[in-house]
Nucleic acid binder design. Structure first.
Length: 199
DNA sequence: AATCGGATCGTCT
DNA sequence: GACGATCCGATTG
C-alpha cells in the first residue's frame, strides 16, 4: 500500500475519472457511493449509470458552457448536479479524457448498503426497492441537492465514491433513458439482474 | 402489469 | 414561454 492510498483509503482518485467517459461509466458499476450528513453515513453500491460526453447532443454540455452546467467543464472527479422536472435532483460524476472539454456520468441507481433508515425518512417510504432505483430517487434518499454542486468526490467529505468489493460484475448495455437526441447510442450501463436498476 | 397525465420550477430562447 | 438525463398515483386490462 503506497502513501496515497493510506491517506484516502479506497476512494477513487483523479486517474480513475480522467479516462473515456464511457469506460468510467462502466467501471463505476460496483463502486460505493458514500454520503456523510450530520455525522451519519449513507452508502450504496452503484448499479446503473449513463455516459454523457461533451460532443454528444444529449449531453447538457453540448451547447456550450453556462452557469448551470459549468461543473461539467470543470475538473474531473467532482459532482455535477442538476434539477429537473420541477421536482428532482440528479447526480453526475465529471469524467472525461483530458483532451475533451466536458463529460460526465449520470448515477442512475444504487443498491442501499448503510443508512437505510435515513433513506426511508428522506424518501417517505419503507419499500426497499423504491428507495434508490432511479436518479431522482437516489438523490432524494442521499440528501443530494445543489448545495453539493461541484464538490470533490475524491476525498472524505460530504460525498465521495469508494472502490467496491472485488466482485465479478456482469455489465449490461442499453439505450439511455429520457432523452430525445442520440437515442441510438448504447451508453446506459447496469449490473445485469440487479433488482435496484430502474425499470 | 402496463399506461397515462399531473406536479412543478430552473434554465435557456 | 416552453421544455426537461423524473417520479408518483390513478386508472385500466
Amino acid at each position: 500500500m503506497n502513501e496515497k492510498s493510506k491517506r484516502k483509503p479506497n476512494i477513487l482518485q483523479k486517474s480513475f475519472y480522467e479516462r473515456s467517459t464511457i469506460e468510467v461509466a462502466k467501471d463505476l458499476l460496483g463502486t460505493i457511493l458514500v454520503r456523510t450528513i450530520d455525522g451519519k453515513q449513507i452508502s450504496g453500491m452503484i448499479v446503473e449509470t449513463e455516459a454523457y460526453i461533451g460532443i454528444d447532443p444529449a449531453c447538457h454540455a453540448f451547447k456550450g458552457k453556462t452557469e448551470a452546467n459549468k461543473a461539467l467543464f470543470g475538473p474531473v472527479g467532482h459532482a455535477y448536479i442538476y434539477f429537473i422536472y420541477g421536482n428532482h435532483y440528479c447526480l453526475n460524476a465529471v469524467a472525461h479524457i483530458s483532451q475533451e472539454k466536458a463529460g460526465g456520468v449520470l448515477i442512475r441507481a444504487v443498491e442501499p448498503l448503510s443508512g437505510i433508515d435515513i433513506m426511508e425518512t428522506n424518501r417517505g417510504t419503507k419499500i426497499l426497492k423504491q428507495l434508490t432505483n432511479g436518479p431522482g430517487k437516489l438523490a432524494q434518499a442521499f440528501g443530494i441537492t445543489k448545495q453539493l454542486y461541484g464538490v470533490s468526490l475524491m476525498e472524505p467529505g460530504p460525498l465521495y465514491i469508494m472502490n467496491g468489493p472485488d466482485l465479478a460484475i456482469h455489465v449490461c448495455t442499453a439505450s439511455r433513458i429520457g432523452i430525445s437526441q442520440a437515442q441510438e447510442k448504447q451508453w446506459r450501463f447496469f449490473i445485469c439482474d440487479n433488482p435496484f436498476v430502474s425499470r
